[in-house]
Design a binder for these strands. Structure first.
Lengths: 359, 359
DNA sequence: GTGAAAGCGCTAACAG
DNA sequence: CTGTTAGCGCTTTCAC
């Protein structure tokens, strides 16, 4: 059961370990003849180099990491995350790079995890759920661990970013609701410490002119329901609510309905992130498709480039598309205004502009 | 930028590397005094042991792996996978164990990946999407890599299994449909090479007495639509269809509707895996909640036990619950027959029986 | 073009 | 209880 090592292959091929190493990596000239012998021997013995030995020797891991500080349960009910990971994997698969997914309970563990990752366990990290002034950014800079920031990050940084314009779709939705005669439009945001929640909330406040009907949720169904309950109890209750994700929107929708409201007649509802089933709900849910797979691909590519030594870049993956559906329509018959067939297959074709980071 | 190593900590604490190592692991008696010195030094230097060095020395990785041979896109549209991973992570988080997720394009890459994993990159693997007579089982046995098989596997094996009874819910649904007067009930299965698809398909064939209306899909929306189209073109078209996942069911539902059929009046529809939004669809979709999180937790626990040397066990996580909803009801008003509030929170309380493996 | 040897940072005997 | 000493399997100088 003792694993076969590079020494076994060397012996089998009648050369030294160094030669085997170089024959595999091509890092120095090798005669075709010996290379063939080495490859044959490796094949015969089913040898695969030990990643940990290689990591130790080279300080590279052939893996990138995503560290999640959120409750694992959120993974299950979030429409963004699985699709994002799918996009990431589609890029990593090309180079047989592994993705390390680690959920941590608290900040101490998170910091320890990043330190451990930087010691030969991962070549880089993808940072999700960014906060204004996120402590992870300086930490990773200090550790020298390459990273890509997914989402808007305002501070100067040497890292690449994958951004989208989340304010624009919010403005579009508010305008749409206004056009339908709505005057009291509420917003249930995600945790406002997250930049993307904040951007959406700010765009909302800007568009409606006040934050009186802004309520902070946490992306879970429970919070969607609770914040909706609060809003509906107001003397001057809103006639429309924009939620920062579909899970909260649907929880809110269910709650409103069970309280005798008809959607969209009594209450218009819009979500965000466009879950793959949202178009099939009743009423079909107006939502913003945020191109998670495209963003995952972009992030993985930027990270690989960074690891290979490229300069950091900010890539704006502008794949937000608002799908106006029945949940915000006064005329219940109409389906989406924008093309509704805009799904995974077409998202590769969305406009992707690139600009270099100036700072 | 040279990383701080155990030698730095030893120097800082005025002891040797061995002492530091043991102070951290507790693998041999250490005086409280020196332990304190070591911990203080480690803290001061922000030292985290190099995982690759440790892996090399101990042949352990502090990580477990899931290798996926499917198209990354499936991850995004599958309701089982994210919830399963969430369950796995909730167990791994307790011990700060990492999850390695690797998507591979073909069998050669998959085999190479398992070999690489077994060389100190992962301590074990979770096997999903089992096939009858799956080649991975003997491979992992040969490699000596601990594993847990998720799903029914009929061959004798030394690995632990996490099983569920998928036949029973299929029988329940068929019986329910029969009771509503349906006589031509079709089934769109997943790829029949997968054991779980096969089990469901066999249960279906058994229950209806023929496989004339059995069609093989591949869990994608596209196949759900295509197989539904074929079924609806039959002279004697079915009046009910049971799909092997919700994604196919919803695609089928949409297709049938766009062809002028009313659901469930003209066509009853049932899915499998109970996506978190399925209860909110219109009509609400009858589906089988298969407790993915509970299965993920069970699998992770069994794998950790195996890694620590426990004997393999087969755990039957029987958390399948059929939610009868509008898509199969003649009386369109009624909601689920079974409690519909059976969600993540309650799934921990489902009956979980344990039996030891006899072979 | 190939070989020999020195580590990468840790753990685990073996001494004391 | 603590120090010394070999490795784990690979890469990478440095010689030849």
């Amino acid at each position: 059961m003792s694993r076969t090592t590079i020494a076994d292959v060397a012996r089998e091929a009648g050369v030294t370990k160094a030669t085997v190493s170089h024959a595999m990596s091509g890092k120095r000239p090798i005669s075709d003849d010996t290379r063939a012998k080495v490859l044959a021997a490796a094949e015969r013995l089913n040898w695969v180099p030990s990643q940990s030995a290689r990591s130790l020797a080279t300080q590279t891991a052939n893996a990138i990491a995503v560290v999640l500080a959120r409750d694992p349960e959120v993974i299950a009910n979030d429409s963004f995350f699985p699709a994002f990971i799918a996009g990431v994997e589609s890029v990593l698969a090309e180079t047989e790079t592994a993705l390390i997914l680690q959920v941590v309970p608290d900040r101490a563990a998170e910091e320890r995890t990043y330190r451990a990752l930087s010691h030969g366990r991962a070549d880089g990290a993808l940072l999700l759920d960014l906060r204004t002034d996120d402590w992870r950014v300086p930490l990773l800079e200090e550790l020298g661990l390459p990273a890509v920031l997914v989402g808007a990050y305002e501070q100067p940084t040497r890292f690449s970013c994958v951004r989208t314009d989340d304010a624009e779709p919010v403005r579009e939705i508010i305008a749409h609701l206004r056009a339908q005669g709505h005057e009291r439009i509420a917003h249930v945001s995600g945790p406002l410490e997250y930049v993307h929640s904040r951007v959406r909330a700010d765009a909302y406040t800007d568009a409606v002119g006040t934050d009186a009907l802004l309520r902070e949720g946490d992306f879970t169904a429970a919070s969607g329901r609770a914040r909706t309950a609060e809003l509906l109890e107001l003397a001057d209750r809103p006639t429309a609510v924009l939620y920062s994700n579909d899970t909260m929107a649907i929880a809110g929708l269910s709650y409103a309905r069970s309280n005798g409201l008809s959607i969209p007649r009594d209450l218009a509802i819009a979500g965000f992130d466009d879950d793959h089933l949202s178009a099939h709900l009743s009423p079909a849910l107006t939502s913003v498709s945020s191109g998670p797979a495209a963003r995952g691909r972009a992030a993985a590519r930027l990270l690989q480039a960074d690891i290979l030594g490229s300069d950091p870049r900010t890539e704006v993956v502008d794949c937000n598309v608002v799908h106006f559906r029945e949940s915000t329509s006064t005329t219940t018959s109409s389906q989406s205004t924008t093309t509704s067939s805009q799904s995974t297959s077409t998202s590769t074709g969305t406009s992707t502009s690139t600009e270099s980071t100036t700072r």
